[in-house]
Design a binder for these strands. Structure first.
Lengths: 162, 162
DNA sequence: CGCCGTGGGTTCATGGAATGAACTGACTCA
DNA sequence: TGAGTCAGTTCATTCCATGAACCCACGGCG
């Protein structure tokens, strides 16, 4: 996308998946839509763009092109472990959309497979053994420390995400 | 962006923030970079694009334009509660980038403000009182049920994200 | 055999969006 | 009076997304 390498992990991630079509392709991969023509029909995406995005995702190791039959040769694009680990990002987007952009339909429910109860996505403190909201995140002094803050600068200096 | 209204929450979210620049602008807002010229310099973004993205974000209620002084009139773009709740998505992207696209630098550490310990982001089952990996998410039967799966279709039918 | 249908692409002309340089305008300060 | 800063807008150029058309391997059908 851009030329120079990015210092920030978010920026680096966006080099690969920072594109509307790319994220929709990944969403469909999670939904089980993994073949070229299925994707093209479901997303109503232009063929060259789809081919380009799939190529990019394969090149970066997010998807894997697998021939699932010969005669005729047919292949599908499967999520690699790297791709599967994008699910927290997709779930976060889904939650946000459900909360703020709902059309009135019931929100999507995800459940813990082993027990069947509805699950939450959130921040979890292993020490306190509890989840908490984004507002309770703070920086840690030292290298690599960062904070996501909604506070104003005047309320006190903070470290930053980078 | 597109014309027709989207049925899927992820697609609806992407209508607003499905753009590389938009996400970088939000990242900077969390980092405390909230003024037009600060953003322009930090992101090296073209002015018209920045103006357009900020306008969109304000229109959708993600950012709020606040005049923080008169004489001379200066304003900044603050995250609304709706904007703050995008942090899980940004953190997920950061985590993913840290894990798979690292340049060797130590990953960013986020800590629980009230106790100071490093926090995790993940899926949490309030019933089992434990976190778990993306692979353990399943669908729930009924309206709005969904699943994020890395499994192959042949291993069994599933509901889908929508 | 001849022909149609399907899956998975590539090529190419076009339009709309991103880019960056230049300009505007309100205000401050020396 | 003039230079500097912040926050944009205007405009010409460039680039990429789009969609139509085309290609090719293969299978099925009559």
């Amino acid at each position: 996308m851009t030329g120079e390498p990015q210092a920030c992990s978010i920026a680096r991630s966006l080099e690969i998946i920072g594109d509307r079509w790319t994220i929709l392709i990944l969403r469909d991969a999670f939904r089980g839509i993994r073949r070229f023509d299925e994707l093209r029909r479901d997303l109503d995406i232009a063929r060259p763009v789809l081919a380009d995005r799939l190529r990019r995702l394969v090149d970066h190791g997010v998807l894997q092109k697998v021939q699932y039959q010969q005669h005729p040769p047919r292949s599908e694009y499967r999520l690699t472990p790297m791709g599967v680990e994008l699910s927290p990002a997709l779930v976060a987007l889904m939650r946000w959309g459900d909360k703020y952009l709902s059309d009135g339909a019931p929100p999507t429910v995800l459940v813990h497979e082993t027990c069947g109860n509805a699950l939450e996505q959130g921040f979890w403190c292993p020490h306190c053994r509890q989840t908490f909201s984004p507002a309770e995140i703070a920086s840690r002094p030292g290298p690599g420390a960062a904070v996501l803050t909604d506070e104003l600068p005047t309320r006190g200096p903070r470290a930053h995400i980078h």
